[in-house]
């Protein structure tokens, strides 16, 4: 990407919660059609970084560029307008609302001042069918679904907003093998359509399956960055566990 600006670029993102510094200067780039694996220990700051990018929390300092344009998301709605879609690690569903209501939360189809429930359920059915998501009914309360079903509904919600950037924060944690396969296919599929995908996962095999590049986070910093084609399982594990990082505390210098 010589002269063309990347889809997303994060520069020196910092975020503290009171005395806790969650992000201490993170660099990250994402290209169009690229699948980026974001890895690191629990507590490394991956989810916090993605919440910043999705507008769910506001960073203290640093810069977010989308399509080369510097942006600052005051709210999740602002990020969504810029084409950011996200599946949160905690899914962000409302248990007492039904499947269709959760799918369309914040963007319910309306007829006049009223929610067009018929259209909403029909469209929800179509979306879930297209993504091969199986739920007993779109009128089922989300709280009564299994963990895997909830997760697939959350993924369907993010994908159905047709984002330019799709963030998946441990999207397969509660899924059965076949469902994981489906999500991986979905990721590859949207990426070929030009969507940039950020995938957070602890499953190494998934990283090798769909990711083009891996960015490693450690204690609130981005510390490593490598093309998947240049990695094997051992070197990836070394990267994540920072087996070679003892000699010199190599900062995020190799990030570009």
């Amino acid at each position: 990407m010589a002269d063309e600006s990347p889809l997303v670029e994060l520069r020196g993102i910092r975020k503290s919660f009171g005395a806790v510094t969650s992000l201490a200067g993170v660099e990250l780039t994402l290209g169009r059609g690229e699948v980026l694996g974001l890895v690191g220990d629990n507590g490394a700051g991956k989810s916090t970084l993605m919440k910043v990018l999705a507008g769910a929390i506001q960073h203290d300092s640093g810069e977010i560029l989308v399509d080369g344009e510097s942006v600052r998301f005051a709210s999740p709605a602002a990020a969504r307008r810029k084409g950011i879609g996200i599946v949160y690690q905690d899914l962000a569903l409302c248990d007492t609302l039904d499947v269709a209501s959760n799918l369309f939360l914040g963007r319910e189809p309306r007829r006049g001042p009223f929610i067009d429930r018929a259209a909403m359920h029909a469209e929800a059915g179509r979306i879930l069918r297209d993504l091969h998501v199986r739920v007993p009914s779109t009128r089922q309360e989300i709280g009564r679904l299994s963990g895997g079903q909830r997760q697939t509904v959350a993924i369907a919600r993010a994908v159905s907003t047709q984002p330019d950037v799709l963030i998946l924060d441990e999207p397969t944690a509660a899924l059965a093998v076949a469902e994981v396969e489906q999500v991986l296919r979905l990721i590859a599929d949207v990426a070929t359509r030009g969507v940039g995908v950020i995938l957070i996962t602890h499953r190494l095999q998934d990283l090798f399956r769909v990711c083009h590049r891996i960015t490693v986070m450690y204690e609130g910093r981005s510390v490593d960055n490598a093309l998947v084609s240049q990695l094997d399982t051992n070197s990836l594990v070394d990267m994540i566990t920072r087996a070679n990082a003892t000699d010199a505390d190599k900062e995020a210098a190799s990030d570009h």
Binding site: P76, L93, C94, S101, L105
Partner: peptide
């Protein structure tokens, strides 16, 4: 009853009672 069951306001009232942060992250004020 119409307001609670058939408008976005009613939907968000219910959603907020269920999980406020989820509704907020969905872009609702």
């Amino acid at each position: 009853a119409i307001l609670l069951n058939h408008t976005r306001f009613g939907q968000y009232v219910t959603g907020i009672g269920s999980n406020e942060e989820s509704v907020r992250r969905a872009g609702v004020n």
